[in-house]
Structure formats: C-alpha cells, structure tokens
C-alpha cells in the first residue's frame, strides 16, 4: 500500500538536532498555551475522524466499532493531557518544610529531548498516549514508530502540522527499532528515553549505551489495543518520568 521510510542513524541525528532547537522555545511558552495547542491537536484529529477511521479499518484491520472507539479515546486523551498542562506543576510541585529560615519549594521542569519507542499495538492511540504526556510538560520528542501501520503515524504528523505545534517539538521516524536502538541509547544529546514493549535485548542495549551520558530511561510493557483504551493507560505519572524537579531555597526573614 505504501513505501515507508526506514529511518537511519542520521535521520535520528537530524531529528534530535531539530528537537533540541525547538525544545527551549516550547518549554518557555506558557503552560496554558501548550494546553491550547494539545487541545487543538485533539480538534484536528476530530476533524479528520472519517479518514482515520477508514485507515484503521483498512490498514490495521480493525472493525468499525473498534476504530471509532480508538479514535474517541485518542481525542479524549489529548484533551485530558491538555487539561494537565497548567495543573501539573501545582499538583507535583511542593513547598518543602525545612528547619532554616528559607522558603523552600520544588517545581517540575521538562527534561529536554526525549526519544520514544512507541507501542506496536494501537497505532494511533498508542502513539498519542506516549506523545501527549511527554510534550505537554515542555519536552520535545522524537517518536520512533515500528509497527504494521506506520502510515497512521504519518497522518498524525499531518494533524500536528495543522495544530500550531512549533516545528521540531514532535518528530516522527518510521523504522526498525532494532536498527536504531543503539544510536538512540548512545546519543549524548538525548536526555530521556521511553521504550514501550522493549525486548530484554533492547533494554540491555539502551541501559548500556545510555549509561555514559546518564540518560533517563522509562520502560513500559506494551498493551493490547483494548488495554490502551482503558482509563489506566493515562496518568499524570506518565508525565513525571520526563521532568526534573528543581528545588529553590529562598531566604526569608523572621
């Protein structure tokens, strides 16, 4: 049905350069604005519902009902994370009790550039479920898609294109993760890696290669398409692996 690009080491390198360039600007936008943009993604997805539903049925082999269900949840999930954009810092930030005359508080800040191996199952919803919690806090992401319906991810890229996400914040690479994992793990400008459904081997490679530059690693098991639709496939704790907590000690008089 289509010839799909098989991303190489250099494609990944270029994607990281683009992500690095975009990340700071993205993070410095107001949380509210990031929320608006995620919301807009949801709207854009909604407006292409028909096309996505057809594709899920024809390419992935979903039934009509299942396709509609996946779309519903994907749209809702974008909106759900959009809502978190300006609430996340309040919920996870803290004012810390300290014994000195300091006002001491911790706030989450984005980790930076994140590479994400997205799920094999649920080609639309799985991707959305991984991308949204990463970008909403101000990270830039390079998504690596290796599944039977990679065209879905390219359609998602079209949705992103029309939803005001600044260029470079979300980058999509289609290709074999076995070919890319070593370079992803070893790239010193990648701050964190999410790997969904990693094989034992991939885990070892990422851990070994990433150790040198102390890359944050988050491994999650893949889920079935039905499981991805469940409510426990979305959580604010999917955002926390990709933030750093900055603690400030502010002197106060007594």
């Amino acid at each position: 049905m289509a010839n799909i690009c098989r991303a190489s080491r250099k494609d990944f390198r270029d994607a990281v350069v683009a992500a690095r360039e975009a990340q700071e600007g993205w993070a410095s936008r107001s949380a509210f604005n990031r929320g608006q943009i995620l919301y807009r993604m949801g709207e854009m997805l909604e407006s292409r519902r028909q096309a996505f539903a057809e594709e899920l049925i024809e390419v992935v082999g979903y039934g009509r009902e299942e396709a509609e269900a996946e779309l519903d949840v994907a749209i809702d999930r974008l909106l759900w994370y959009a809502g978190w954009s300006d609430k996340f810092a309040q919920v996870f930030g803290t004012v810390n009790p300290v014994a000195t005359s300091h006002f001491d508080f911790s706030v989450p800040e984005p980790t930076g550039v994140v590479a994400a191996f997205v799920p094999e199952h649920a080609p639309l919803l799985g991707l959305v479920s991984c991308m949204a919690p990463i970008v909403v806090t101000g990270n830039a992401v390079v998504l690596i898609v290796d599944n039977d319906a990679p065209t879905l991810s390219l359609d998602v890229a079209e949705v992103l294109e029309t939803s005001d996400v600044p260029g470079g914040v979300v980058n999509v690479l289609t290709g074999h993760r076995t070919e890319l994992r070593e370079h992803v793990g070893g790239h010193r400008d990648v701050d964190a890696i999410l790997s969904v459904g990693a094989s034992a081997e991939e885990r070892t490679v990422l851990e070994t290669e990433g150790a040198d530059s102390v890359t944050r690693l988050e491994f999650r098991p893949d889920r079935t398409a039905a499981e991805w639709r469940l409510e426990d496939s979305q959580s604010p704790y999917w955002m926390t692996p990709f933030v750093e907590f900055k603690t400030t000690w502010h002197p106060v008089g007594r």
């Binding site: 390198r13 990281v16 010193r188 400008d189 040198d212 530059s213």
Partner: peptide
C-alpha cells in the same frame, strides 16, 4: 567516541 555528542558538555 563514535557517539553523537551534546553541547551540554
């Protein structure tokens, strides 16, 4: 090093 480096360093 055979690895892409970062400006952080």
């Amino acid at each position: 090093q055979g690895r892409y480096h970062s400006k952080r360093y």
